[in-house]
Nucleic acid binder design. Structure first.
Length: 437
RNA sequence: GCCCGGGUAGUGUAGCCUGGUCAACAUAUGGGACUGUGGAUCCUCUGUGGCGGGUUCAAAUCCCGCCCCGGGCCCCA
């Protein structure tokens, strides 16, 4: 084959498409139960949208291009920036809280790995307006509910607050206390050497550096409070973090899966408060499923500052995690009924019958290949049909057709004008009818 | 960008180390026979070495480059 699909992209067959669709539908329903509404934005955007948000450095990982009008564009690498662009363009006067979610394909020029593709699907949401612990807690709970409702059992949730980290740095007199620059990245990756170097450059003495490094191992709120008693600069953020965790439990998050992680920095400049990440321990190197927090992109868009919370979720990776746990839904692609004419004479009658079945809402197929009865039964079986209808000249004559239950092999005669009724009674709701929309 | 392992009909495998007797087996699909239930059975067509180069009398087999897949590093807005 000379023509191949591009690296890092995938084709999805009927079965896989149905399975993905089913998980997606499940997730959409969860978003809706939390009061979020789905939006769509363009597949490509102005290049500047993403460089303004994330810096020039990201261009090497973008599918950017120049169109025939000389515009610098790029396929979207993520959906937060487009959604917030949409907000600042057209939605600023919508009633608050504004709850938006999305599910769409994104593109990054990366080295493909397990659960990581050049074209991938992201789900996510933005909650615009409220700056309260309830809002943050609801978003965290939404993320957890979303993943657990798919059937995923093992999930690690780590939650922190940028203000805690910044408060500590301010307490230590470090100039990166606004949360910018290489030190934050070193903390996010927890590169001890780089952290030591970074803190020392900022004039932090050795004993304080050791104290800072020791904070990472504290994974509960009480322990953190006593450890940070000396750093008043972090107190307010710590109080907020405590409120959010408490409320998240009230919003339905099982208490035992939350870990406090004061050192989540998300490697980004625009986070302002609560930050969180969720991992599937069943996965290897690419185990992070979801990440988000409270942020402010108003400077990028030049609009009024507005409190915003959101997260992005790797949809493909979530499916890999479900596979790893053996929880991926099995899609059934079967049809309800297969109509097999016997001989050429009743062919049109068979088509008319099929039309009637379809109008009644059944998934019905009729033989298109003029097979003999034996081959047709096999074909019906291959297509996963629950029933086959045998319709020959004799049946047309007597006004009865044979309906064969393909699982049991039992066959009964049913009057032609009662076929739809007979099948509908037995098939709705049947397994084949559960095939997701 | 780096390291490791792979790539044989649509699918699943065998052969590779030790070059020739090799392109095979299963299954699936298409066509046909059996003339109305044969979901069977039988016959049969099609289809294969990722791509390119090298070594050799001879390459699926050995060597090199590239492409793609998988695992890991880096990155991950």
């Amino acid at each position: 084959m000379a023509l191949q699909r591009p690296r890092g992209t995938r084709d999805f067959g009927p079965k896989e498409t149905a399975e993905r669709q089913r998980v997606a539908t499940q997730m959409r329903n969860t978003f809706r139960r939390f009061g979020f509404q789905e939006v769509q934005t363009p597949t490509f955007e102005e290049l500047d949208l993403f460089t303004a948000k994330s810096g020039e450095g990201i261009v090497s990982e973008l599918y950017d291009f120049t169109d025939k009008g000389g515009r610098h564009l790029t396929l979207r690498p993520e959906l937060t920036a487009p959604t917030m662009r949409f907000y600042y363009n057209e939605l600023t006067m919508e009633p608050k809280p504004l709850k938006l979610f999305y599910h769409a394909n994104c593109f990054r020029y990366d080295r493909p790995q397990k659960g990581r593709y050049r074209e991938f699907w992201q789900m996510g949401c933005e909650l615009v307006g409220p700056d309260t612990p309830e809002a943050a807690a609801e978003v965290v709970a939404l993320g957890v509910t979303l993943l657990r409702d798919t059937g995923l059992e093992r999930l690690d949730v780590r939650i922190g607050h940028i203000g805690v980290l910044r408060g500590v740095l301010r307490h230590l007199g470090h100039p990166s206390a606004d949360g910018r620059g290489g030190l934050m990245r070193a903390i996010d990756k927890w590169d001890e050497k780089a952290i030591r170097d970074g803190l020392a450059e900022g004039g932090v003495d050795a004993s304080d550096i050791d104290w800072f490094l020791s904070l990472r191992d504290i994974r509960d709120l009480d322990g953190l409070s006593s450890a940070l008693a000396r750093a008043e600069e972090a107190t307010e953020a710590l109080t907020q973090l405590r409120d959010v965790v408490r409320l998240a439990e009230a919003f339905g998050v099982p208490p035992d899966i939350i870990q406090i992680d004061p050192m989540i920095a998300r490697g980004l400049d625009y986070y302002t408060g609560i930050v969180f990440e969720m991992d599937a321990p069943a996965l290897g190197a690419e185990k992070q499923l979801l990440g988000g927090g409270a942020y402010d992109l108003s400077s990028v868009f030049g609009g009024e500052p507005v409190a915003t919370l959101g997260f992005g979720l790797g949809f493909d990776r979530t499916l890999v995690a479900l596979d790893a746990e053996g929880k991926r839904p099995e899609a059934r692609l079967g049809i309800d009924v297969y109509v097999a004419p016997i001989g050429d004479a009743p062919r049109e009658r068979a088509v008319l019958l099929t039309t009637g079945l379809r109008r009644a809402g059944l998934i019905a197929e009729v033989d298109l290949m003029r097979r003999n009865p034996g081959k047709n039964l096999k074909a019906a079986d291959t297509r996963g049909a629950r029933y086959a209808i045998l319709l020959g000249a004799r049946e047309v004559e007597s006004g009865q057709v044979g309906i064969k239950d393909l699982a049991s092999g039992d066959q009964v005669d049913v009057p032609l004008d009662r076929v739809v009724e007979w099948l509908t009674e037995r098939l709705v709701p049947g397994p084949a009818a559960e095939v997701p929309a």
